[in-house]
Design a protein around this nucleic acid. Structure first.
Lengths: 237, 237
DNA sequence: CGCAGCCTATATGTCTGATTTAATAATCTC
DNA sequence: GAGATTATTAAATCAGACATATAGGCTGCG
């Protein structure tokens, strides 16, 4: 509290939803707890009720809170949170996510991404392959230590997901991609990239390009497991 | 338009977000198209600007629209939509989803749920098994034609997902469960449940109870494929 | 002729404060 | 004491004003 926001000027509403979301996810407000009435909260945050209420709408849309007349606005049980919402993921990472969180995320990746790679190997067209190859070359050229290389990495995975032709899968992986981008920052902080991820990526691309679903699945599994081991969480099966 | 909402009285804001969301997903507003200025829209919908703007906030939180000062509020490209958001799923189903949508959903189920069943077989505890057994018995007793039986079915799957101990997986499956509940209605409309789903459920339960991950995975695959064939979409690999 | 930088119009963003509604809690009746 | 009634409260809605950021046009220079 009492942090003066001198510069931000406008754009308050996105900031306040973010801050509140982070606080809720971090556990500052326990599930079931009810937030101070909007009149009080707004005053405390130095914003109008309108801005505060719109922020609460955003949080409600993501399942973090639930507000009903008279009852007040209370934090929803964690089981109702939309954990795979891109913003919720970002907010989770903002507050140093627990090991459980990261473990669960990688478990999901190990479930979804190999299956997606398999589908991509079946359905990719020539255009997809061109784009993937370009991204792969960019990765090789810049390396994953610099932003350009990281962007190419994301592009590679995004095109791969698009090649599945499955809108739900694309949507899901987009959410995860955002999370991965963040966890990459984590990785960089801990050690200095001990492993060269390029061979795994090349193997994956080759399998997809060759149209070999089983090989693509296996290559992606290897790739994700490698990413996992870079995160210092090696207690998965 | 011009549907008089005589009864609802309050609760306008949820209604307006829902209606707008359905319209957007149904394609009434094409991606890229920009909605009438909020002053105009609010007038047209007979609500105050505040209510309308809060509704737009909800849609923005789900990635359906994006609004910036001066530029106006425009429908986001479909690739940014949070397709797995429970509300977005519900809205999609409201407007008769395309075959693609259902196919993609089942493809996702075939990816996620067998993996989840495998995890559940590894991590379930005695309490989980008790709950699952109870739900199973209720299903057998009532049958899937009545609401009680359908509720038991959902309970069964929910407990199974909870037994994975993976928060992300639980969140994801919760979204899908909601969709499944709706598609079940579709099923009922078309044919009169030609297949008895109980044996599949029993096999799945037995595998999970016995702690056999591979068997659980296979049983779940069979179960989901069965559900798929009940939906008259048999063009999956 | 083309482009950089300023300018202005406009739609969103924000604020204030009053009013209405619905759900809870306290009260009252039988 | 059980059930119906009223009071209370916080959210929901409304209305109208002001602030601000930015798209798109304008100006002037190279």
């Amino acid at each position: 509290m009492s942090t003066r926001q001198e510069a931000p000027a406008l754009r308050i509403h996105g900031t306040i939803a973010r801050d509140l979301g982070i606080a809720i996810i971090a556990g500052t407000y326990a599930p079931g707890e009810l937030l101070p009435g909007d009149i009080a909260s707004a005053g405390q945050l130095k914003v109008s009720r309108t801005a505060y209420r719109e922020a609460v709408r955003i949080l409600a849309a993501k399942g973090l809170v639930e507000s009903r007349p008279k009852a007040g606005t209370r934090v929803s049980p964690m089981s109702r949170w939309h954990l795979l919402d891109p913003d919720v993921i970002a907010w989770s990472l903002q507050g140093q996510p627990g090991e459980d969180w990261i473990r669960d995320l990688f478990e999901l990746r190990l479930t979804v991404e190999p299956a997606a790679a398999e589908l991509a190997a079946r359905r990719r067209d020539a255009g997809d392959l061109v784009e993937m190859k370009a991204a792969l070359d960019a990765m090789a050229q810049h390396g994953l230590a610099v932003p350009e290389g990281q962007a190419a990495d994301q592009r590679f995975h995004h095109v791969l997901m698009r090649a599945t032709r499955n809108a739900h899968l694309i949507s899901l992986s987009s959410s995860i991609e955002a999370a991965v981008a963040w966890t990459t920052i984590f990785k960089q902080r801990n050690r200095a990239l001990p492993r060269d991820p390029m061979p795994d990526h090349v193997a994956l691309f080759d399998a997809v390009a060759a149209g070999k679903p089983a090989a693509a699945r296996k290559a992606m599994t290897v790739l994700v497991r490698g990413a996992l081991s870079d995160t210092e969480l090696s207690f998965l099966p």
